[in-house]
Nucleic acid binder design. Structure first.
Length: 292
DNA sequence: CCGGACTCCTGGTTGC
DNA sequence: TGCAACCAGGAGTCCG
């Protein structure tokens, strides 16, 4: 699951190569990767060829590259998406779903390969609209409902705490709710909860303010650390635009560590099914606190 | 508002 | 050795 750090690594890697580049050709190998585009592949190709990319932007796990005329190419990696930057003549991966040929004024001809095994990811051309909170900021309509991520300077901590207190749900569910806080997925949710000693099903409304602050701080810490290390690569699926993997898997404390000793107390980490996915935590360090 | 179930999907792994 | 069942889960939708 590429989460904020992996997606940001992709955005940052894309930036120098695509900004100012002209789209010279587009090939759609699998139309299913255009699910969010809402029109056939020919429409996608026709509207993209001849356009010039501006600097790629990101919110949460969404990347978009403005192409002028109030439009942008929106990219979501889903579960298994990769965006690879390659020389024009490089070999094409079998799982490449979309290929975009570009010409950069300084770097020359390049190719962007959208590779996606599970096809939960997508590309789409979308209209840019004013952001709800800061009208000067433009976001694709598909991203309008996505909250700012905790690394965004405009992320509003007080607003987040207030919303959290009003929610009547478990804290992990809230962390994964992209309309409340974006960019966090299953891995970093488990890691941040472990670091702040909070149980995944702790009711949000019962979280004390100091605990909520600790949790948000740990979310930022774990995202920042992963970012510095180039993103997680625990199953080698997550690559930067150059096809290189990150190193964060070496420092996971809870995610995927079931049966291993908790790095804090030594008792075994447990994996439970929650929200149709695995939740990894230390049953000793992370207990539901404060009955009601 | 909330949560659960379901959908999209395929390749690596597991199990017989 | 071969094959089938199983598992991974981001995000949207629908329903009770």
């Amino acid at each position: 699951m590429p989460e904020l750090p992996e997606v940001e690594v992709v955005r940052a890697g894309l930036a120098p190569a695509v900004t100012g580049a002209l789209v010279t050709g587009v090939t759609v190998f699998d139309e299913r990767s255009l699910r969010r585009h809402g029109a056939p592949g020919a429409d996608f190709v026709g509207r993209l060829v001849g356009r010039t990319f501006a600097a790629p932007e990101r919110r949460g796990k969404f990347i978009w590259i403005p192409i002028g005329d109030g439009e942008a190419v929106v990219v979501h990696l889903g579960m298994s998406g990769q965006v690879l930057l390659r020389p024009l003549g490089a070999e094409i991966d079998r799982l490449t779903r979309i290929r975009i040929d570009i010409h950069h004024p300084e770097l020359g001809a390049l190719r962007i390969d959208f590779v996606d095994q599970r096809i939960f990811g997508s590309m789409a051309i979308d209209e840019l609209v004013a952001a709800v909170d800061v009208p000067g900021d433009l976001v694709p309509t598909q991203v309008e409902h996505i909250a700012r991520d905790p690394m965004d300077p405009r992320f509003d901590d007080a607003l987040f705490f207030a919303k959290l207190a009003k929610r009547n749900t478990g804290v992990k569910r809230a962390l994964l709710d992209q309309t409340l806080i974006s960019g966090v997925g299953n891995i970093y949710a488990d890691e941040a909860l472990w670091a702040s000693r909070v149980h995944y099903d702790q009711p949000t409304a019962s979280l004390s303010r100091p605990r909520a602050k600790t949790l948000l701080a740990e979310v930022r810490l774990v995202l920042g650390k992963a970012l510095a290390e180039g993103g997680t690569s625990f199953d080698a699926q997550y690559l930067n635009v150059n096809g290189e993997s990150g190193y964060f898997s070496h420092s996971l404390n809870a995610y995927g560590q079931q049966g291993e000793p908790c790095p804090r107390c030594g008792r075994p980490i447990v994996r439970e099914q929650f929200m149709n996915r695995g939740s990894h935590f230390c049953p000793y360090c992370q207990r539901v606190r404060g009955a009601r």
